[in-house]
């Protein structure tokens, strides 16, 4: 049997984490959670997820970008996705390529698009 893919969600909003967990688990992924950037970086080391979902605006403004930069520096091999709220992009310059992101999901995330994008990226049937 194929090993289930692990997705790490780094977001300080427990409701967003919970909603994403439901979507991912329903699609057969294993989900890890972290409530801030620091916890997230440790969790990446510990659980070595296949993909990471990072919220742009956590405890500090733009801290999601900092997490992405750190993971890129640490040569994290999996795809990283940013979660941004409507309006974040116009207030803060987010350069997906520069941050090494595989994509940006706008909150509220559409489950169908979210799951199909992740499945395609991770080669899950």
């Amino acid at each position: 049997m194929e090993q289930k893919k692990v997705i790490l969600i780094i977001d300080d909003d427990p409701d967003i984490r919970s909603a994403l967990r439901v979507m991912l688990e329903s699609a057969g992924f294993v989900v890890g959670e972290a409530a801030n950037g620091e916890e997230g970086l440790k969790a990446v080391q510990r659980i070595q997820p296949d993909a990471v979902i990072i919220d742009l605006m956590m405890e500090n403004v733009d801290s999601g970008s900092q997490v992405a930069i750190k993971l890129k520096e640490d040569k994290y091999p999996g795809p990283m996705y940013m979660l941004s709220s409507a309006g974040d992009a116009v207030r803060y310059n987010i350069d997906a390529r520069e941050l090494g992101l595989a994509g940006i999901f706008q909150k509220p995330v559409d489950p169908k698009v979210f799951i199909s994008t992740l499945k395609a990226k991770l080669g899950v049937a």
Binding site: S18, A19, M23, K107, P108, V109
Partner: peptide, 9 residues
């Protein structure tokens, strides 16, 4: 956003 995502689920 949280409400919308729970509703979508």
């Amino acid at each position: 956003s949280a409400i919308a995502m729970h509703l979508q689920n």
